[in-house]
Each structure stands twice: as C-alpha cells, then as structure tokens.
C-alpha cells in the first residue's frame, strides 16, 4: 500500500460538494476511481472538477470546504492498494 497526494491544478476556492445542498462528492474513507470527481476549484466564476487521478481509498482531505488553495497544493490523500 502506498499513499499519494492529490494536488490542486489551480489556485482558487475549494469545494467538497457540487452545490450547497448536495452531499459531498466523496467522504473520507470512501473508495475512489481515477476518473471520479473529488472536489471543485472555483476560479474566474468557473467551477473546475478535480479528478482523483488514481484508484484507491480517499483517506483524508487536507483542506477544509471553501478554503483558499494554491496551484500545486496537496488537497487530499489517496491510499493505493
């Protein structure tokens, strides 16, 4: 087992849910697939989906909902089997 960080490709605002009334994309501890959306980054009035990029289990988010993130900043950890 190894752990891999998911990095934000963009600077902006981090969101765990597709909209304020929805459930989060992923809950910590859930399995994820590479093409699965795990969060949104808002920038320039655009909401950009960030994919997990790897198959595994999303162990932990490293930033809180609606926090500011920088490009290249680790936002989550995935455990790869």
């Amino acid at each position: 087992m190894s752990r891999q960080q998911i990095l934000s490709p963009l600077p902006g605002t981090f969101y765990r849910r597709p909209n304020p009334t929805s459930e989060p994309y992923v809950t910590e501890g859930d399995p994820v697939t590479a093409d699965q959306t795990i969060c949104l980054i808002e920038i320039m009035k655009q909401f950009n989906e960030v994919k997990a990029g790897v198959n595994g289990k999303l162990v932990e988010f490293l930033v809180a909902n609606e926090d500011a993130v920088m490009a290249g900043q680790p936002i989550a950890i995935v455990e790869i089997e």
Partner: peptide
C-alpha cells in the same frame, strides 16, 4: 507546463 508558482 508545470503548476503555477507565482503570478497569474
């Protein structure tokens, strides 16, 4: 290109 470091 690498991730943005500084500037926009």
């Amino acid at each position: 290109f690498d991730f943005l470091k500084r500037g926009a």
